[in-house]
Design a protein around this nucleic acid. Structure first.
Length: 577
RNA sequence: CGGAGCGUAGCUCAGCCUGGCUAGAGCACUUGCUUUGGGAGCAAGACGUCGCAGGUUCAAAUCCUGUCGCUCCGACCA
């Protein structure tokens, strides 16, 4: 249990700023800087100053308590990891974009841990041999490193950050499901205790792999995720994963022969939708060409739909793809983007795989590119004219589409991802040979789950959600100090200061973490700073209230109440229940 | 990785276009006086290799080249 010692303001360091540094963009980032909680060392790399560290430790402690309560056991794994284990899992390649690598003086390469499946599965493989040892769930709270393409928004997307990661090992799928549910429930409690309104959504498993996953999201306009949700039945999913009940493209009277027509200079869906062509976007087939692990692939979407790259990555089994260049496309198909199509007779490279979105299945009388610059084809029937290798749901859901479950219109909102739970299955167990002997003496692979919480990101999410024009409004649970005592005169012989010291000692004696603002500053400065830093409860002691035998107690963002001096401590305690 | 913008005092910024003497303001900091219930006033003071490296020039914060860093947008729709 962490002990939170009391503190006098002049003895710690809380360097508040009137103005936010110019490189902070979003509110929570500005507030963390202005309130003197963090300072930037480099892009995506931050120092936690004393008050910021206290808030961080409180978030960590909540996480720790809930992990322990859920039966997880704490470990600490190295941040410095040999690249061999990353090669063994295959993630040296698949996660190479985010892996930080360093070299030692012997020129040997090391990986700075962005997560620890490789290490913990190795431990499990070595140390867990029997069903009697299972289930086990290991967690750690530690610094992680990710070579983010673009760090931003302070702690929200950092190169170095603190993450709680947990890894469960079970004897069976059912048992793993129970472990997953325990973590899911623990996460809900953690975010609630942090004062956050979090909700869980179906999510893509991404580079980590695995069977399915849920993300815990905090609604925020500045969030980097888009979430699809249904207010009627409760369906919620990350846009990368979301599906809807949109109808397939209507089939019309078939039979008309394909007809090539000139479309000089028209290279966009919008262009073809305008006069003189007037082909609505939903009667067009969009032909996308990607280069995936050295091979070209064609993706067909309806003209008014957007390809969802996360879904696509899941279907082709790699994230290592990019849009093909104009020259690559011309070489294979004989036309540049804007005039492309997958009609069999016009395709040159028949070995190219064609992925098509389900919404196009059965569509006819469609228009698409002719693989000849300046020409398109009309009356295209997918079934008749295009060889589709794979049909998948590849489209991005849009707001207002009917919910696949209940039909109510879906909504979209932005959110910050603060936690992610994965049902992994046996991917990593296989690669690291994490096996156990069951009761019959048969060798089985352990079934895994993994679970992450961005601790530093969660802290900033609290700030993003809890603030007003004056500054942060910390929930009691994670406030750097719960109570700030503000004597308006700090002379040691002054009655206000004497009373402040008394209340400070009494609250401290009752285990309350309290800060005494003993700075010799004008009242306005102290009030402004207390509001900015965001202490939940402020006890004001000045001559005016002293004359009435009272002190003032103010909840941050709430009303001010005057209480008799001898009832002050009780009144404060009552506010913390 | 591509594009755009920005690097001048601890913070916010001006000065740069149109080169010119000891480089400025506000806030913060130090000292003194006054003030003291919501970011005080006056006075004095300290704080800068103008991101770095080249170049042009009699002369560079200012112009040119390179480089590093920071921020934003994008990295996708044919």
């Amino acid at each position: 249990m962490v002990i939170f010692s009391p503190m006098k303001w002049t003895e710690t360091l809380i360097p508040t700023l009137r103005e936010a540094p110019a490189d902070a963009e979003i509110l929570s980032h500005k507030l963390l800087l202005r309130a003197g909680l963090i300072r930037k060392l480099a892009g995506g790399v931050y120092t936690f100053l004393p008050a910021g560290l206290r808030a961080l430790r409180k978030v960590e402690q909540i996480v720790r308590e809930e992990m322990d309560r859920a039966g997880a056991i704490e470990v600490l794994m190295p941040a410095l990891q040999p690249p061999e284990i990353w090669q063994q899992s295959g993630r040296y390649e698949t996660a190479r974009d985010v892996l930080f690598k360093v070299k030692d003086s012997a020129n040997r390469e090391w990986v700075l841990s962005p997560t620890a499946e490789e290490v913990i599965t190795g431990v499990a493989a070595g140390e867990i041999n029997s069903y009697r040892h299972l289930p086990k769930n290991f967690y750690q709270i530690s610094v992680k490193f990710r070579d983010e393409i673009r760090p931003r928004f302070g702690l929200m997307r950092a190169r170095e950050f603190i993450m709680k990661d947990a890894y469960s090992f079970d004897v069976s799928d059912e048992a793993a499901q129970a472990s997953y549910q325990k973590m899911y429930d623990a996460y809900a409690r953690i975010f609630e205790r942090c004062g956050l309104k979090a909700f869980a959504v179906d999510a893509d498993t991404g580079v980590i792999g695995g069977k399915f996953s849920h993300e815990f999201m905090i609604p925020a306009e500045t969030g980097e995720n888009e979430v699809v949700f249904c207010e009627s039945c409760g369906y919620a999913a990350n846009i990368e994963k979301a599906t809807s009940g949109v109808p397939k493209t209507a089939a019309r009277d078939a039979g008309a022969a394909i007809e090539k027509f000139a479309t000089p200079g028209v290279v966009t869906i919008e262009g073809l939708a305008k006069a003189p062509f007037n082909v609505p976007a939903n009667r067009q087939i969009k032909t996308l060409v990607y280069m995936a692990e050295g091979k070209l692939v064609i993706v067909l979407m309806r003209g008014d739909d957007q390809l969802n790259e996360a879904k696509f990555a899941g279907k082709i089994g790699t994230t290592l793809f990019r849009p093909a260049t104009g020259d690559e496309i011309f070489g294979a198909l004989g036309a540049y983007p804007g005039s492309l199509g997958a009609v069999t007779t016009t395709r040159k490279g028949l070995e190219i795989q064609v992925f098509a979105d389900e919404r196009l299945r059965g569509a006819n009388e469609m228009t698409t590119g002719a693989n000849e610059d300046g020409f398109h084809l009309r009356n295209v029937s997918i079934a008749r004219d295009i060889q589709v290798s794979h049909w998948f749901d590849l489209r991005t859901v849009q707001a207002g589409e009917p919910c696949a479950k209940c039909g109510a219109p879906l909504k979209l909102r932005r959110a910050v991802e603060v936690g992610h739970v994965f049902k992994l299955g046996t991917n990593y167990s296989e690669k690291f040979n994490a096996c156990y002997l069951d009761e019959a003496g048969v060798r089985n692979l352990a079934v895994m789950g993994c679970y992450g919480i961005g601790v530093t990101r969660t802290l900033q999410a609290v700030v993003e959600q809890c603030n007003d024009k004056d500054g942060i409004i910390w929930p009691l649970s994670v406030a750097p100090y719960r109570v700030c005592i503000t004597p308006l005169n700090v002379d040691v012989n002054n009655e206000a200061m004497k009373l402040a010291e008394t209340i400070y000692r009494e609250l401290t004696g009752r285990g309350v973490d309290v800060i005494l603002d003993d700075r010799d500053e004008r009242p306005g400065v102290k009030f402004k700073d207390a509001d900015l830093v965001g202490f939940p409860i402020r006890v004001g002691i000045g001559e005016k209230s002293l004359a009435k035998g009272e002190v003032e107690i103010k909840q941050r963002g709430g009303a001010l109440q005057s209480v008799k001096i001898n009832g002050a401590v009780e009144a404060v305690m009552k506010l913390m229940l």
